[in-house]
Design a protein around this nucleic acid. Sequence first.
DNA 1: AACCAGCGCAACCGCCAACGG
DNA 2: ACCGTTGGCGGTTGCGCTGGT
Length: 316
Amino acid sequence: MRNPSLLGTSTTSKSTPCCSKVGIKRGPWTPEEDEVLANYIKREGEGRWRTLPKRAGLLRCGKSCRLRWMNYLRPSVKRGRIAPDEEDLILRLHRLLGNRWSLIAGRIPGRTDNEIKNYWNTHLSKKLISQGIDPRTHKPLNLVSHASSQANHDPVPKSHPNPPHSNSSELGEKSITITTQDFKPTNQENHQQYQSQHVVDNSMANWYNAEGASATHIMGQPSSSHGNEGDYIENYNEDMFSSFLDSLINDNYLFVNQQQQPQPQPQPNNVVADAASADQNFMSHGNIWEAEIMSSMVPFGNEQNSFNNHHQHHRP
DNA sequence: AACCAGCGCAACCGCCAACGG
DNA sequence: ACCGTTGGCGGTTGCGCTGGT
C-alpha cells in the first residue's frame, strides 16, 4: 500500500495529477470512509466519480473512490481465496487473451481485474514458471526463451489495450468494432502478438459463422475507402463475443477443428460450473489447441480465406 | 524475542479511448 | 475539428503480514 498522506501535507514533490488538490487523502481506506462511500453509492448510484467525493463528503479523489468501490465495496465482489476451478479459468483465459485482466475478470463472476492481476502475478506466473512454462506465452520455457526475447506475449499492442469486448456487464448494446489495422504490428517484434490476436479474431468469426451468420455480416465489407486488402471492418457485438468466450471456456470450441464432435450444451452464464470438467478436457487438449492456433494462423490479407475455410465447426 | 526476507494485495500512477460541448 | 472531461485499463509500488532463523 502506498504511504498514507494528505496531499499538500506530504513532503514528496512528486505530482499526482489525479489527486492534485491539497487536502485529498490517500492510502488505505478506513471503515468509516467505506461506509460513507457505500452508503452514498447505494443512495445515488455509481458514476460521476470526479464529483462524487465532494457530494459524498469524502476527502478522496474520484479515481480512488471508483477503485475502492469497484475492487472492494461492490456487493457483487466475491471475497476469499481463488478456487481451483477459477484458477483454471484464469489460466485458460490468460492463454487466450493475455494480460487483459478486465476481460478475464468479466468472465469470472465476483472477481475483479485487480484481484485476478494480483493472483496471476503472485501465484500463477510463478506456478507456470515452476512447471517450465512461460507465463506470457504459455509455451515451454526452453522454446520461448528465444522468442520471448523478441516479443511480448500480450496479443494486443499496448496502444490498443482494450479488447473487442471489455466489460460484458456494462457495455450493453454497444457493438465492437475492430479493424485489422488495429492489430497490425508496428514492427517485427510485434508480429507474433498480432498473429495470436488474429487467431482469436478469426476463431470468433469462424465460430460465429457456424452459428448461422454470413461471413460478410461478421467480417464486414472490404473497405473501399482504404483499398487495402484485409482492411475491412469487423463488427462483433457484445453477445457474440460473450458467447464466443463461453464456448472457449467450456472447451466446446476448438479452434477451427473440423473433426471435433459436438459437445454437450454448456450452461449459459455459468462458466465456472463447467470449469472443472472443461479443465480436464483442456489439459488433454492443450497441445491440440496450440497446434490449432498455429495452424490457423494466416498471413495478412488472407483473413477472409481463412474464415471461409474454417467455419465448419458447429457449436452444439 | 528480535530481526529479516519474501510475499500478498490494496492502492496509486500514467496512459488512453469515449464522449460531449 | 478541436479540446476538456470522464471513466477505465494495465503496470507498478510499498505497507503490513508471516514464516524462518
